[in-house]
Design a protein around this nucleic acid. Sequence first.
DNA 1: TGTTTTGTTTCAACATGTGAGACACAATGT
DNA 2: ACATTGTGTCTCACATGTTGAAACAAAACA
Lengths: 234, 234
Amino acid sequence: MDSIGEARVGGKSGVGVLDKAVGILSFLAEGGPATLAGVVRGTGLARPTAYRLLSALEAHGLVAREEGRYYLGLRLLSWGGRAVGSALVGAAMPVLEALRDRTGESTQLYVKEGDRRVCVASVERTGGGLRDAVPVGAVLPLGHGSGGRVLLAWSEGAEAPDLAETRALGWAESVAEREAGVASVSAPVLGPDGGLRAAVCASGPVSRLGEHPGERLAGLVVEAAREIQEAGVR
Amino acid sequence: MDSIGEARVGGKSGVGVLDKAVGILSFLAEGGPATLAGVVRGTGLARPTAYRLLSALEAHGLVAREEGRYYLGLRLLSWGGRAVGSALVGAAMPVLEALRDRTGESTQLYVKEGDRRVCVASVERTGGGLRDAVPVGAVLPLGHGSGGRVLLAWSEGAEAPDLAETRALGWAESVAEREAGVASVSAPVLGPDGGLRAAVCASGPVSRLGEHPGERLAGLVVEAAREIQEAGVR
DNA sequence: TGTTTTGTTTCAACATGTGAGACACAATGT
DNA sequence: ACATTGTGTCTCACATGTTGAAACAAAACA
């Protein structure tokens, strides 16, 4: 299925200082709390640069320093709670976790952003074996994968015949479409007005899901989409 | 009680680009979604500067643009969920809301950060009349106000006689100590190891709380602290 | 004890960020 | 319908802010 092969977040924005600061925050988010030396090693920044940016981020409450280690700061929590779609993500998390438990696979929630899709929530399969890892924030194309197809099919103005078929079916599946060895099943999360809000997706290796993952997973994924709809708000 | 008279977050960090970017994010967080023109007016930045920084923030997922308006982006939610103390804040919110309902006043949660305290959660009194508004992220001194006193009294190494008295009492109150007309009552939130985690505080106008706010509020605030302790994690 | 690592600071070099100005387009007013 | 105002996007000369080599003190390690 889909993967982060084309993840764009974290690249070059055109403002170098921001790229560096985001690199630091991203490193702390993914790797957990770190010392200055850890941040230097993990980001590749020169030590004085990392020190200066961390000090600035700390002054703004975006990182906190305790016992020599830097942590993400609580201002991010405050801002995050006001982010667009945060209520939807909050409502979706328990459903994604339940879907993960029912399917035994990793689950994600995608929203359409321009001509791409963004992973806004992600729950990874627990236990052993292969798992599809899509980090929150990953930006993926719409053209490949079941999540992208769902977002296209339920978008206003979607008129291609295959998208109409997908809509009639109510869900979409994909096998080794975007990345070799990965399969997925997705269904749309609609708002009270019937408009597309997001796509909920379960994904894992073809070796486990087979050539027709929808046979086993479609009902569960569609059901999860319905649960998010009913629990969702914005 | 305490107010944001000395709020420091959002000032000069020593890295100008970061100050400007934080200014933008802060504006969106406080004022809600805005057009480019709105951000220009709200931040005072030159239009091309605001446009460039917004574009960079958007590329990093920190803001999103929909129908000409900029919103805080979901990456902030992702990072915020990994911020230090986010679990404690999450656990505390319903308790703060309940305390607000029981007392009829505004409630906050403070943590000690260096020689200051930071408001990490805030619930404002509903309904009419005066209310004490402390925004999340506000940085206040420890020396004044019941919240500061509690953080000092339960810190390791606290030995002053008045702090020992506060500890024996189990809570602290303040009246027009930090800001004229504001009174408050605070109690400590301790961790499983008995170490100080935060201070929970109820605050409002002296005209309503009187010269001895502890008489009415201490029991409720201490109870709220206990609830947060039991619900808390980190 | 000696060496290495870590955190913090300085400052000359230079890379990057800035915003006045321009332009196209949209919205508003006459 | 035309004129004016407002908005979003882009360019580029240049001023300023960012950078990191070097230095140093302290902590950690061998």
